[in-house]
Simulated assay, not measured.
Amino acid sequence: MRKLAGICLIGACLALAGCEEQDVVATVADKEITKPEVQAHLAFKRVPEGNEKLRERHVDRYLEREALAEAITREDALDDEMVRAELDEFRQELLISRYFEKYLDERITDQAVRNYYGNHIDEYTHRKAHVAHLLIRTNEAMSETERKAKLTTAQEAYSKIMAGEEFDEIVRTYSEDKLSREKGGDLGWIKEGSIDPVLSERAFALEPGEVSTPFETAFGFHVIKLLDAPKDVRQPFDAVKGKIRYQLRSQAKQKELERLRNAVTVQRES
């Protein structure tokens, strides 16, 4: 073990090897370093108990840094108040962070997350319908004459569908929605209420295979077809457990923050 100025090692090997119990492991200047302090440091550094050489090196390093800190303190080169302010800031952040990490891990368990999912299953069950549409776009800058011309185009497309022409072919000819046009207007399975409310209401009111009359939304004039009947779709637990955990942890943290704030009175002097 190397010698350090101002450090007197006292039974460090005994403390590391688990032999005779000693409260003081070393003395740095006039400061006694106790066995619990060293053990806490080793635990913090996650040094395995069975590796005595590694533990001894960590103790050496710990004592050396303690000696350097003492030497620097004696140099009086730093602003003590600023150092204390920074240490106090770190202490506050560490206490708050570690406390809530432990508090939330103990309370928001895997079982708590699963229980919430089971008790709020309706939140994760949605009605979906398989819909296709034809869109003739409009915008606010259009004149009334232009808007009526767009409506006429939509009505023309609808009439051809009603006359027996295939919906997807009419979509490819008329629709101005480039993303869905090449798929025959197929929008996939849409969740009720997740799209334009007018379109959603019309879609979920149709029967499978039925085509709507032209109607207007903020996007333009639509003609829609219900490809498959609406059905209830439940999100699996694995898909939502992360969101549930985050929600429960946020709620629990806020509640505990309020409790802790009310536990201590803060009075500022005028």
Rank of each mutant, 00 (worst) to 15 (best):
K128C: 10
R137G: 08
T109W: 07
A40E: 12
G209H: 10
V38D: 03
D30V: 09
E258R: 13
Y117A: 03
L16P: 00
E21L: 10
G242P: 01
S159K: 13
W189P: 06
D79R: 03
V240T: 01
K150M: 10
M82N: 11
D23E: 15
L63Y: 01
L14W: 10
E210D: 10
A5W: 08
L9K: 07
S212I: 01
K102E: 12
E70K: 06
P48T: 01
R172H: 04
K243D: 15
E269I: 12
S250W: 08
G11P: 00
C8R: 14
R84A: 14
F237R: 06
E70L: 09
G209I: 00
A154E: 02
Y99A: 00
K225T: 02
I108H: 05
E86L: 14
H41Q: 09
D122L: 11
D232S: 11
L9Y: 09
E93R: 14
V38L: 02
A252S: 11
R234I: 10
V28C: 00
V38F: 04
A69W: 08
P48N: 08
I121F: 13
E258M: 06
K160R: 15
E66P: 01
D186E: 08
P230I: 08
S212G: 02
L257C: 11
H126Q: 15
K53T: 03
E20V: 12
